[in-house]
Amino acid sequence: MKILTCPLNGPRNMSEFTYGGEYHPTPDHADASAREWAEHVFFHHNTAGVVTEWWCHNASSYWFLAERNTLTDEVLRTFDCDQLYNQRIDFSAVTTPETRK
């Protein structure tokens, strides 16, 4: 079986992991339009080549990032998401003309 190296738990069978989608920065929740949110939630680059994506190690519920080549299925590296997310983001309800519609 293919082996993926989890930054927390070390090398494990691929079957222990769940794919979590492409990594892309979250829009600014304070003033992103509904269109930007739609794009963020539904649309993907779906690149044929090296991509950065989310993976979860199921047994530890641990989310991390991986760089993987989607043509060869080769994983180039895996790393902790603390490198990209290091502060808490609090959401507050925002009313924009689009959400009121």
Binding site: G21, E39, F42, F43, H44, H45, N46, T47, A48, T70
Partner: peptide, 18 residues
């Protein structure tokens, strides 16, 4: 099977994972 790759040539992003 190559929808995103070809659409990308026309500058179109699609809600697809292959």
């Amino acid at each position: 099977g190559a929808s995103s790759v070809v659409a990308n040539m026309a500058g179109i992003k699609l809600p697809i994972h292959s």
